[in-house]
Nucleic acid binder design. Structure first.
Length: 152
DNA sequence: CTCTTGACGAGGT
DNA sequence: AACCTCGCCAAGA
């Protein structure tokens, strides 16, 4: 199976990841690992990065059919590593992500190693599961981290 | 076709 | 606390 073209399996993986990322509220951030967990592959945070790497640009290319997902409708900038930092990858990539985050009110700091970081305790978004899929919300007693970062 | 490489992360040394 | 290893799996080379 999966020999015709991009296997449907891979497609499904990408879709799930992009959809999960779209669930991240404006002005909040989460980690690759968390997205991986949300889509049922807690051991594959790496693959989440792969998805973003291949995220199409929103570039209005007439010859190209409109991709369902692109950097224009997928808040890729809200995905950071587990430490709340923006991974180095490209020299300009990190700064671009930092700008995008700041543009939506997220405070992005820069440590001595010129690495951008975000305070996860303040902007982190780590629900147990996707709000869209959460049929039941276990209203426990301690869920105040959500309220910690409201008000822009 | 095989081999290496990652927008990562947890666990072990 | 720094560094090493493994898991995972799609893409490039």
């Amino acid at each position: 199976m999966a020999r015709g073209e991009r296997s449907e399996e891979a497609w499904a993986w990408y879709s799930a990841v992009y959809e999960a990322i779209q669930e991240i509220p404006h002005g909040r951030v989460t980690s690759y690992g968390h997205i991986a967990r949300l889509v049922g592959k807690p051991e594959c945070p790496r693959q989440v990065g792969v998805c973003l790497k291949h995220l199409p640009s929103p570039s209005t290319d007439p010859s190209k059919k409109s991709s369902t997902w692109h950097s224009g409708n997928v808040p890729w900038q809200r995905v950071l590593n587990a430490r709340g930092g923006i991974s180095p990858r490209g020299p300009d990539g990190a700064s671009r992500q930092a700008s995008a985050l700041r543009a939506e009110g997220v405070e992005v700091e820069q440590n001595s190693m010129r690495e951008y970081t975000v305070d996860l305790s303040k902007y982190g978004w780590f629900p147990d599961m996707l709000p869209s899929e959460a049929g039941q919300v276990e209203s426990s007693d301690d869920e105040d981290e959500e309220a910690a970062a409201y008000h822009t």
